[in-house]
């Protein structure tokens, strides 16, 4: 009799616990659905709105005062080139800094301060980077409102993200790998070069691409340094028609978010459709980059054998 009571008690406790389990799962699901639905509705609405305009012409036409002829050629080319400069500047700097902090730097209060500052930098509003870049790149260095200025500005913006991602990736490598390498007589640099970097590559690449995906949607700092609204030509191709190899970095430009913003502030209703289409393309670009990050991580992880 006493025995039965006890089992019943236990069952009751389990039931109560399970009820909470279900409840929490349901709340979690609602939260997830809320976030997911918002994104879906937003992207869906833009896609539906802009569907009529999404044709090849839209990608190969320059902006125009006639909504039906206007396209995003200069905008998407500008975005891609700016991202290129950003990646070229942010990746070596960010990865280098991350490796140094994790592998070489002594653990003392100086590194602690640097660490805190890098984490804080990631939270600085992007417009602040824009102002900094306006003073340094645009005026001090005389780069003007060029692709170079924009690329470097966004590189500063994502530098903390790349550094933090690099450090997280390196930290995830078991200490035994390091010790094993050293035990076999490898120098510190050889260890970093042949073990640490390859093993942490999936994490680093993910960080880089997520940083770039953030940068591609940035508008404020790019406007600050003087990106243009109407531009109906492309930067000069390297080594064509007398252009130098790097002339394109000094070219004036526009980017996708600016083109989109310009269209939303037009009086004509038809431009809102263009804005929707451009927004949809931008979201697809961002999602594409994120997908690339996931794929790369998967591929590279498969190759790691330890």
């Amino acid at each position: 009799m006493v025995q039965q009571d006890k089992t019943a008690d236990i069952h009751a406790v389990i039931r109560r616990g399970k009820r909470w389990d279900y409840l929490f799962a349901a709340i979690g699901l609602i939260c997830l659905a809320f976030g997911l639905l918002t994104v879906l509705v937003l992207v869906g609405k833009m896609g539906l709105e802009g569907l009529d305009r999404l044709s090849l012409d839209f990608f190969t036409s320059y902006p125009s005062r006639r909504a039906a002829n206007a396209g995003i050629l200069s905008a998407w080319v500008g975005s891609v080139l700016v991202m290129l400069v950003t990646a070229f500047a942010a990746v070596p700097l960010g990865v280098g800094a991350g490796v140094y902090l994790e592998e070489y730097a002594k653990k003392n209060w100086v590194t602690d301060i640097i660490e805190i500052n890098i984490t804080n930098l990631a939270a600085v509003p992007s417009i602040v980077y824009g102002l900094l870049a306006l003073g340094i790149f645009v005026y001090q260095f005389g780069f003007g409102g060029s692709i170079l200025s924009a690329g470097l500005t966004l590189a500063l913006l994502i530098l903390p993200i790349v550094i933090v991602a690099t450090r997280e990736a390196i930290r995830a490598i078991p200490g035994a790998m390091r010790e094993g390498s050293m035990a076999l007589g490898a120098t510190k640099w050889q260890t970093v070069r042949y073990h640490i970097l390859p093993y942490s590559m999936p994490g680093i690449l993910t960080g880089i691409i997520i940083g770039l995906a953030r940068a591609i949607g940035e508008t404020a700092p790019i406007i600050t340094i003087g990106a243009l609204t109407f531009i109906a030509f492309l930067p000069p191709l390297p080594l064509v028609e007398g252009a130098g190899l790097f002339d394109w970095v000094m070219s004036p430009f526009t980017v996708m978010p600016i083109q989109m913003f310009n269209w939303t502030s037009r009086p004509e209703e038809a431009f809102q459709i263009n804005a929707g289409a451009a927004g949809f393309v931008l979201v697809v670009m961002t999602l594409g980059m994120n997908a690339l990050a996931i794929w790369l991580r998967y591929r590279l992880r498969k190759n790691i054998k330890w």
Binding site: A243, F246, M250
Partner: peptide, 13 residues
């Protein structure tokens, strides 16, 4: 070398 050869006033703008 590439950066040095950048010509700012290249096109008629």
């Amino acid at each position: 070398v590439g950066l040095l050869s950048v010509n700012i006033a290249h096109a008629q703008i």
